[in-house]
Amino acid sequence: MSGNGNAAATAEENSPKMRVIRVGTRKSQLARIQTDSVVATLKASYPGLQFEIIAMSTTGDKILDTALSKIGEKSLFTKELEHALEKNEVDLVVHSLKDLPTVLPPGFTIGAICKRENPHDAVVFHPKFVGKTLETLPEKSVVGTSSLRRAAQLQRKFPHLEFRSIRGNLNTRLRKLDEQQEFSAIILATAGLQRMGWHNRVGQILHPEECMYAVGQGALGVEVRAKDQDILDLVGVLHDPETLLRCIAERAFLRHLEGGCSVPVAVHTAMKDGQLYLTGGVWSLDGSDSIQETMQATIHVPAQHEDGPEDDPQLVGITARNIPRGPQLAAQNLGISLANLLLSKGAKNILDVARQLNDAH
């Protein structure tokens, strides 16, 4: 009898209710805020589980004197976190989706994509230029951005401005803007500013005609071990179906173009009346040469937790077992079709030249 009692006690200790789920994140304040929001949602869904947040620095956090596009290494903000995932030191990792490459290392998958916040870019102005827009900034004003995508589009749109690289986390960039006289304004992701509670610093939100956004911008991705079915089931509740389908289309477009950090590629997606609209573009580094096109596809946005595919093969690095396969494939095909259209119009040449120029500098 006593033996059975011990077995029952052991089973209770090993039951999922007692389990601590370890969540990996970057150390920056924004990353911690984003991770806290994901953990809060998981806690609400699984009140019996405990969650421990483990923060670590990544290569991208450490190399702050070089433009991201020049470092010449993929997975700048993800490699150390993936290493911890691989060694079973954490069970899942919360990322900004735009930091996750469209091809993940073997053994990993994006197990959830959370509801997207505003994906557009924002302009934050130096205190002396508050009330201005990019259009009304004085001639030769210097605007800071760490992104080739932003610089290429904005140089084309605002030729009277000069664009220079600015690195560091959000706090560091804002301090550089406010305390030094080098920059009249800087460009940042609206979602990051909003998550930090800095709505009052948003001086201008850039519309798609001015600057399309990065693939996955404004959404959070939760990376897990691809074979860890328990954790895949656990994080599945975080999937937002519309965000998922938009981001599958965007990531398929980028992957098929073979774009990345070192080339200016941008997108804009919208879901309306059962249609998914995808606009994508590529630019030369100075913005003088560009190709942009829009395509659409009829896609039914499923309700969360309709029964999805059981075999769960990944699409552009994403596993969404609780979302039907048909809409996911339709979104992926839309991204591939748009990429093929741009490639047929000469996108590869623009991107190759951009890559060579970026590598040469």
Rank of each mutant, 00 (worst) to 15 (best):
Asp91Leu: 02
Gly317Ala: 01
Ala40Ser: 09
Ile63Asp: 00
Gln204Ile: 01
Ile54Gln: 03
Thr109Pro: 00
Leu341Thr: 14
Gly281Leu: 08
Leu81Cys: 08
Val237Tyr: 04
Val353Lys: 00
Ile318Gln: 02
Gln328Gly: 09
Thr58Met: 12
Arg321Trp: 02
Gly280Pro: 01
Gln217Val: 01
Gly236Asn: 00
Val353Leu: 06
Leu238Gln: 08
Val265Pro: 05
Pro324His: 14
Met196Val: 11
Cys247Thr: 06
Met271Gln: 09
Gly216Leu: 02
Leu76Phe: 07
Ala84His: 08
Thr294Asn: 14
Ile350Val: 14
Arg167Gly: 10
Leu245Val: 10
Leu244Ile: 02
Asp233Ala: 07
Gly308Arg: 07
Gln180Ile: 04
Arg246Tyr: 06
Leu276Gly: 05
Leu351Trp: 05
Thr190Glu: 03
Arg164Asn: 11
Pro106Arg: 12
Val39Tyr: 10
Gly317Asp: 13
Leu238Phe: 00
Thr59Ile: 06
Pro47Ser: 11
Val215Ile: 03
Ser337Val: 15
Gly335Ser: 02
Glu223Val: 05
Ala67Ile: 15
His83Glu: 13
Leu68Asn: 06
Gly221Lys: 01
Ala112Glu: 02
His207Gly: 11
Lys74Phe: 08
Phe77Pro: 02
Gln275Cys: 03
Gly287Thr: 00
Glu52Cys: 13
Ile323Thr: 08
Gln181Ile: 08
Gln194Asp: 10
Gly192Val: 06
Val142Ser: 10
Val222Cys: 10
Gln153Ile: 03
Ile350Phe: 15
Leu244Lys: 00
Arg355Ser: 15
Ala185Ser: 07
Gly48Ser: 11
Gln153Gly: 08
Ala226Asp: 11
Gly168Gln: 02
His160Gly: 11
Gln204Asn: 01
Glu210Ser: 05
Asn169Trp: 05
Leu238Pro: 07
Thr279Trp: 05
Glu139Asp: 13
Gly144Leu: 06
Leu244Tyr: 14
Ala40Lys: 13
Ser141Phe: 08
Cys211Val: 13
Val267Gly: 06
Lys87Gln: 14
Ser165Gly: 13
Ile299His: 10
Leu329Thr: 15
Thr66Ala: 14
Val93Leu: 08
Leu234Ala: 14
Asn349Ala: 15
Thr298Asn: 07
Ala303Gly: 04
Met196Ile: 13
Cys261Trp: 04
Thr172Pro: 05
Ala55Val: 12
Val94Tyr: 03
Thr145Ala: 15
Pro324Val: 10
Ala191Ile: 00
Leu329Glu: 02
Val39Ile: 06
Ile318Trp: 01
Ala331Gly: 15
Asp311Cys: 01
Ile53Arg: 08
Asp228Asn: 13
Cys247Gln: 00
Val93Asn: 08
Leu357Ser: 15
Ser37Glu: 10
Asp178Ala: 07
His256Ile: 05
Gln180Phe: 03
Glu117Val: 13
Met295Leu: 14
Ala189Asn: 03
Lys98Gln: 03
Ala67Lys: 15
Val39Gly: 07
Ile299Trp: 04
Arg325Tyr: 07
Asp99Trp: 02
Thr58Gln: 04
Leu92Val: 06
Gly203Phe: 00
Ser337Gly: 12
Lys132His: 10
Pro208Ala: 06
Gly60Arg: 05
Arg156Glu: 11
Val224Thr: 15
Arg325Asn: 05
Arg201Leu: 13
Ile166Thr: 06
Arg167Ala: 10
Pro208Phe: 14
Ala347Tyr: 15
Leu315Thr: 03
Leu92Cys: 12
Glu223Thr: 08
Phe51Ile: 11
Thr66Gln: 06
Gly221Pro: 04
Ala354Leu: 04
His160Ala: 05
Lys227Asn: 08
Pro309Arg: 11
Asp240Glu: 15
Gly326Ser: 11
Asn88Trp: 14
Val316Ala: 11
Val235His: 02
Leu206Met: 14
Glu179Ile: 15
Ala214Met: 14
Ile336Lys: 02
Thr41Val: 05
Leu278Trp: 04
Met271Trp: 05
Thr102Asn: 10
Leu42Asp: 01
Lys98Asn: 06
Met295Glu: 07
Tyr277Arg: 11
Ala226Gly: 12
Val93His: 13
Asp307Phe: 15
Gly260Val: 07
Glu52Trp: 05
Lys87Arg: 13
Leu238Thr: 02
Ala191Thr: 09
Ala270Phe: 14
Val282Thr: 07
Arg164Leu: 11
Ser96Gly: 10
Asp352Cys: 02
Ser96Phe: 00
Val130Lys: 07
Asp65Ser: 10
Gly144Thr: 09
Asp178Met: 12
Cys114Lys: 08
Ala252Asn: 01
Asn88Thr: 13
Gly317Trp: 12
Ile187Asp: 01
Leu137Tyr: 05
Arg195Ala: 03
Asn118Ala: 14
Lys70Leu: 06
Lys227Arg: 08
Thr78Phe: 00
Glu293Gln: 12
His239Met: 05
Lys345Ala: 14
Gly346Gln: 00
Arg173Trp: 03
Leu351Tyr: 12
Lys43Cys: 08
Arg225Pro: 13
Ala354Tyr: 00
Gly236Trp: 00
Gly274Tyr: 00
Val143Ser: 03
Arg175Thr: 08
Ala191Met: 02
Ala189Met: 03
Cys247His: 01
Asn88Ser: 11
Gln181Leu: 09
Glu135Met: 14
Leu100Ser: 05
Tyr213Asp: 00
His239Ser: 12
Ser45Gly: 08
Glu242Phe: 15
Ala330Arg: 15
Thr78Asn: 09
Ser147Cys: 05
Leu220Asp: 03
Leu104Ser: 10
Cys114Pro: 10
Lys345Gly: 05
Leu42Arg: 01
Val224Tyr: 04
Ala266Lys: 08
Lys62Ile: 15
Arg195Ser: 02
Thr41Gln: 07
Lys348Thr: 04
Val235Tyr: 04
Asp273Phe: 00
Leu76Trp: 10
Phe108Gln: 15
Gly287Asn: 03
Asp91Ile: 04
Gln204Val: 13
Phe253Asp: 01
Pro309Tyr: 02
Glu223Asp: 08
Arg325Ser: 09
Asn88Glu: 08
Val215Tyr: 02
Val38Tyr: 03
Ser262Leu: 01
Thr319Trp: 01
Gln50Lys: 15
Glu89Arg: 13
Gly346Phe: 07
Arg149Trp: 03
Leu134Met: 10
Ala55Gly: 08
Arg116Tyr: 04
Asn340Asp: 12
His305Ala: 01
Ala270Gly: 06
Pro101Leu: 06
Ser69Glu: 13
Leu154Val: 10
Pro313Ser: 14
Ser37Arg: 11
Ala67Met: 00
Glu310Thr: 03
Asp286Gly: 07
Leu49Gln: 13
Arg225Gln: 02
Ile71Val: 09
His305Lys: 03
Gln292Ser: 14
Asn169Glu: 06
Arg325Gln: 14
Thr136Glu: 12
Leu315Arg: 04
Gly280Asn: 01
Asp240Tyr: 14
Leu161Pro: 01
Val39Lys: 07
Leu351Lys: 04
His199Ile: 12
Arg150Leu: 00
Glu82Ser: 10
Val235Ile: 03
Gly221His: 06
Glu209Arg: 09
Leu104Val: 10
Val93Arg: 11
Ala330Ser: 08
Pro302Leu: 12
Gln314Arg: 03
Lys345Glu: 09
Phe125Trp: 12
Arg116Gln: 05
Glu139Thr: 08
Ile187Tyr: 02
Thr145Asn: 04
Thr58Asp: 03
Gln194Leu: 09
Glu258Asp: 09
Tyr277His: 15
Pro119Phe: 10
Val130Ala: 12
Ala320Lys: 05
Ala122Gln: 06
Tyr277Ala: 13
Val282Ile: 06
Gln194Gly: 06
Lys70Trp: 09
Lys87Tyr: 15
Arg156Asp: 07
Gly203Ala: 12
Pro138Glu: 09
Thr136Ser: 14
Phe253Tyr: 13
Thr269Lys: 00
Ser96Ala: 13
Gly131Ile: 05
Val143Thr: 06
Leu85Asn: 01
Gly107Leu: 09
Val103Thr: 15
Glu80Ser: 09
Val215Trp: 00
Gly111Ser: 07
Leu97Pro: 01
Val103Met: 11
Leu338Cys: 08
Ile63Gly: 12
Gln275Arg: 12
Thr109Arg: 00
Lys227Met: 05
Glu250Cys: 01
Glu306Val: 14
Thr133Ile: 10
Thr41Ala: 11
Glu73Cys: 07
Asp352Val: 08
Ser96Asn: 00
Val39Asn: 08
Thr190Ser: 03
Phe125Ile: 13
Gln194Thr: 04
Arg251Gln: 00
Arg156Ile: 14
Pro309Leu: 13
Thr172Ser: 10
Lys70Ala: 09
Lys79Asn: 13
Val90Thr: 07
Leu315Pro: 09
Ala270Ser: 06
Leu278Lys: 02
Leu177Asp: 04
Gly317Val: 06
Val38Gln: 02
Leu92Met: 12
Gly218Glu: 04
Leu49Phe: 02
Arg201Ser: 01
Asn349Lys: 12
Thr58Glu: 10
Leu42Ala: 06
Leu341Gly: 08
Val301Asn: 00
Gln292Thr: 11
Lys272Thr: 09
Ser337Met: 05
Tyr277Lys: 05
Leu170Arg: 02
Lys157Gly: 12
Gly144Asn: 02
Leu97Ser: 06
Gln194Phe: 00
Ala249Gln: 02
Asp352Ser: 10
Ala249Pro: 04
Glu310Tyr: 01
Gln204Thr: 00
Leu351His: 11
Leu193Gly: 13
